[in-house]
Design a protein around this nucleic acid. Structure first.
Length: 643
DNA sequence: GCCGTTTTCGGCCCGACTGTTTTCAGTCG
């Protein structure tokens, strides 16, 4: 865990403990906001903490929190954090983190029943004492039991690339239902976060078909992929849906765990531990579609910011649209029956919207440019400023998938890929690329079938032959390269004379991924400074939700990459997304070039490009700073400069 | 605890759903 994450975690803990102790919710919120600010920072918090003034420039950090953060950086811990831990047992926070249990309930369990751990909570369920709490009935207990089961199965966040196809399939099936006008996945999935807690889907009904929305809710709840229905209302349905976790290539722990569970229980039940993900589906009238999409895309922090702006203009923004304050307030006074008929009357009585059909309309009505979903994290995209300074990247330059014209990191059957050189090249051409680099593994990656020097020499000739053929036939450039291992001491896995024969060198760490930060920094700096290296591949080697990878001093790597004209890779595989978004932001701010590569092993890996581009957009990467967007001429010249 | 083209004090986004209640507190996003 990086220092930024450790500091953020302490602030979050403080907030949670204060919450349980019933302290002022705005103070709690302030700590949570500061925690998010710290974890979303693209610079090292220790650097920032050296200058209190700089720290105070960060949105959401005031004098008191600045002191706590400085304390955390200097001493490793915050005294207040330790003091609160003496008051609130750690297990109470475990209980609080259960789905459906909030601060009030957790506090009541702890103070009246002595529940200070998950096992003790289970005991109070078993002996029935949990039922003696106020507002605690049979159903509430069932909900808590389900939450305990989920927590035990470790079903927390899901990798973006696993949730994506589930969201698309669900959206597609809803799109086919009668009366439906538009369907769009929202939430952190739409923002391209590397992991998501759930899938949000916004559905708009055609004008005149609003009443059919309830049928859509019914159909969603009874869809075959649904494992469990959590919530079923007129405008919102929450379900848990089955997920295919195909992690074969990654020696999956998930499929192993899931398989035993499904074998024991062939028909998934509501308590099945098979991998599922929560999906929240909302239905709104078409006139509210943009408002609902904006609302449920978030982030929460972004929405708070936008709403505050609306308020300043005497307007109310909610999932139904943008309204005049007084008109919305008058509408809220009216009461409607809590059934389908009442809901229809409610929709009809809604005041006139200033905007609501599209997101663009809403932002425009607030005199704002509509920010790309990926940047809606309240990091300056609304005000155009961060900490009083005008932000560097212009939103209109943000990279898109269509800008990508080259793939510079791909494997073939020569090492651990599944395509031949020609198959790989033709697929690249089919996807509209002008250049594909063949970069099989180097000799140290024995498990991946890394090429020994003699095999690499022959491979270079094979690649050249395919290039000659396809360049004549399609105008495609096929480059010979290598994903060469950066060994533990920072030396590369081939001798310089061999590397010099390659058109492209992607240098990546594959082993010794638990090195301490100082050693890792030295190692990677050495590779960056190597005169034959073009791209630093998946710089940290992390696997999302699997292993943390290296924690080098990213600011130093970025500065060195800029100096030596090395591009830092965003590995687009959803298991890696390495560089991560915050690192990309730091690299962009420093004017460093970025490569977005799919690390192709099989044909479908090209599809992962969307995740790499989303990560790039989260880091505000302008098109011009991504080497994969350059023309063939510019890209090839850039590569040749090191030959 | 933070923040300020109305404020250095007094705000702080806002609605849906559920379960346990007979009108609403708690939780979530």
């Amino acid at each position: 865990m990086s220092l930024n994450d450790r500091v953020a975690k302490q602030l979050e803990d403080i907030a949670q403990m204060m919450e349980v102790l019933g302290e002022d919710s705005f103070r709690v919120n302030a700590h949570n906001r500061a925690a998010r600010a710290v974890s979303g920072l693209s610079v090292d918090i220790a650097e920032l903490a050296k200058d209190r003034k700089k720290l105070l420039e960060v949105e959401g950090i005031g004098p008191k929190l600045a002191d706590k953060i400085i304390e955390a950086c200097e001493k490793g811990t915050i005294a207040e954090h330790a003091a609160l831990k003496d008051k609130v047992p750690a297990g109470v926070l475990d209980v609080l983190n259960l789905n459906g249990v909030g601060p009030k309930t957790a506090a009541a369990m702890w103070k009246t029943l002595g529940v200070d751990s998950l096992p003790k909570l289970r005991a109070t369920i078993a002996d029935g004492t949990l039922l003696t709490l106020p507002r605690m009935g049979e159903k509430a207990v069932e909900k808590i039991k389900a939450a305990l089961a989920l927590a035990a199965a470790g079903e927390g966040r899901t990798r973006l690339g696993l949730a994506w196809p589930v969201a698309m399939a669900l959206a597609e099936s809803i799109r086919a239902m009668p009366g439906v006008a538009q369907v769009e996945p929202a939430g952190s999935l739409r923002r391209g976060r590397e992991t998501v807690a759930d899938i949000d889907i916004v559905v708009a009904m055609k004008p005149g078909h609003e009443a059919e929305g309830e049928r859509v809710m019914e159909r969603v709840a009874s869809a075959p992929i649904v494992a469990q229905v959590l919530v079923r209302g007129l405008t919102k349905t929450s379900v848990r849906v089955h997920m295919d976790a195909d992690l074969a290539r990654w020696g999956s722990e998930e499929t192993a765990a899931t398989n035993t569970a499904t074998e024991a229980t062939p028909a998934p039940t509501s308590t099945s531990t098979a991998k599922t993900i929560q999906a929240d589906v909302r239905v709104v009238p078409l006139a509210s579609f943009g408002a609902a999409l904006q609302y449920f895309t978030g982030s929460k922090e972004h929405n708070v910011r936008v709403r505050a702006l609306a308020q300043q203009q005497g307007l109310t923004l909610n999932e139904w649209g943008l309204f005049k304050d007084d008109e919305w307030d008058a509408f809220r006074e009216k009461k409607f029956k809590d059934d389908a008929q009442g809901h229809t009357q409610m929709l009809a009585a809604m005041p006139k919207r200033i905007a609501g059909t599209t997101e663009e309309d809403i932002y425009a009505a607030l005199s704002l440019a509509c920010p790309a979903p990926e940047v809606r994290e309240d990091r300056g995209e609304v005000s155009g400023e961060v900490g009083g300074k005008q932000v560097a990247a212009s939103m209109s330059d943000l990279i898109t998938i269509a800008d990508i014209r080259a793939e510079l990191h791909a494997h073939t059957t020569a090492s651990d890929g599944s395509l031949s050189i020609e198959e790989l090249a033709r697929e690249a051409h089919r996807r509209g690329f002008h250049t594909i680099a063949v970069t099989d593994h180097s000799q140290s990656s024995t498990i991946a079938g890394g090429l020994r020097p003699d095999r690499l020499r022959k491979h270079i000739k094979d690649v050249k032959a395919v290039h000659d053929k396809l360049h004549a036939e399609l105008g495609l450039t096929v480059l010979s390269g290598s994903e060469v291992d950066i060994l533990a001491d920072g030396t590369l896995d081939y001798a310089d004379d061999l590397l010099a024969q390659l058109d492209v060198v992607v240098a990546s760490p594959h082993a010794a991924l638990t090195q301490d930060p100082a050693t890792a920094t030295k190692r990677l700096l050495k590779a960056i400074a190597h005169p034959l290296v073009h791209i630093l591949g998946h710089p940290t080697g992390r696997l999302i939700l699997r292993r943390p990878g290296l924690e080098p001093a990213m600011a130093e790597l970025i500065a060195a990459a800029k100096e030596h004209d090395v591009a830092l890779e965003i590995n687009a595989h959803w298991m890696r997304l390495d560089l991560r978004d915050t690192h990309v932001k730091a690299a962009v701010d420093a004017g460093c070039d970025i490569a977005i590569n799919c690390d192709v092993h099989e044909r479908t890996d090209f599809d992962n490009l969307r995740f790499g581009v989303m990560t790039a957009r989260r880091g505000w990467l302008p098109k011009a700073s991504c080497v994969n967007t350059w023309t063939a001429k510019k890209l090839h010249a850039w590569l040749k400069r090191k030959r």
